[in-house]
């Protein structure tokens, strides 16, 4: 197996000097390439913080996070941006497409940031839009796309850089059932075809049901980590 994420003793405390809030508390996590993992837990359990730490958006107070052999906690701010560009794809709850760019341009942006040649960009865009089933929406602006379509474009953007890991923060929260199922189908297919690692932070039972590993966080600690789909959450914790 190929280790893709190896987090050791990761702790993150907000407001350490005033009212300390331990968002992530001494978390150990190990993920292999190609895993399809859901991070679940109630609001405030530390899912998004952990995702931000794995994505190099935030730095832990203690511990180390190795992504495919690189300790990202030791990288400078600029190195981190570059690392994210080449190794991590993000899918956000609110899609976050740039409204003034077409669907194609939103996806191209990442590859342009990477400095890929034009012909390679074109080829990759065609493949990605074929994979997400939006070949006919290439030149459409986000405002003219449905929520589900926007999120599919966001997935294409996340995959454009051929990342090691895709981090998706509540990707289905703003979608109806049909769009959510469609999106999950696409991500599951990409996961299988490209052996890409997906981590979801979610409350959504539909996502949890599709995940092949579920890590449950409570108060910043890993409460359970199971490879079997398990919807029986502890008392007081309910999926959305």
């Amino acid at each position: 197996m190929d280790t893709i994420i190896d987090a050791h003793h990761v702790t993150k405390t907000y407001n350490p000097k005033t009212i300390p809030v331990v968002a992530v508390n001494s978390v150990h996590m190990h993920l292999e390439r190609g895993e399809f993992t859901a991070l679940v837990g109630p609001s405030g359990s530390g899912k998004t913080t952990l995702l931000n730490l794995i994505g190099g958006l935030d730095k832990p107070d203690t511990g180390s996070i190795m992504i495919h052999g690189t300790d990202i906690t030791r990288l400078s701010a600029n190195q981190l941006i570059d690392f994210r560009l080449r190794n991590i794809g993000f899918v956000f709850q609110a899609f976050n497409l740039i409204p003034v760019l077409s669907a194609r341009e939103n996806v191209e942006l990442i590859m342009q940031l990477q400095g890929l040649p034009k012909n390679e960009i074109n080829q990759r865009v065609e493949t990605l839009f074929h994979q997400i089933g939006l070949e006919d929406k290439l030149d459409t602006r986000p405002a003219q796309l449905s929520g589900g379509q926007q999120q599919r474009v966001a997935v294409a953007r996340a995959l454009a850089s051929r990342p090691q890991v895709v981090l998706a923060d509540e990707p289905t929260a703003n979608l109806d059932s049909k769009s959510a199922a469609n999106l999950l189908d696409i991500m599951a297919k990409l996961n299988q075809e490209e052996n890409m690692t997906f981590i979801f932070s979610t409350h959504d039972q539909r996502v949890i049901e599709r995940a092949r590993r579920v890590i449950t966080l409570v108060d910043g600690k890993i409460f359970s980590d199971t490879a079997v789909v398990d919807t029986s959450l502890p008392h007081g914790i309910s999926p959305a």
Binding site: G55, L57, N78, I81, D82, R84, L85, R86, I88, G89, F90, F92, N96, I98, L109, I110, L113, Q114, R157, A158, S161
Partner: peptide, 13 residues
Amino acid sequence: YELGMLIAIGMKK
């Protein structure tokens, strides 16, 4: 928000 997102996905400042 959008600028933060651009930095997050890998656009250098």
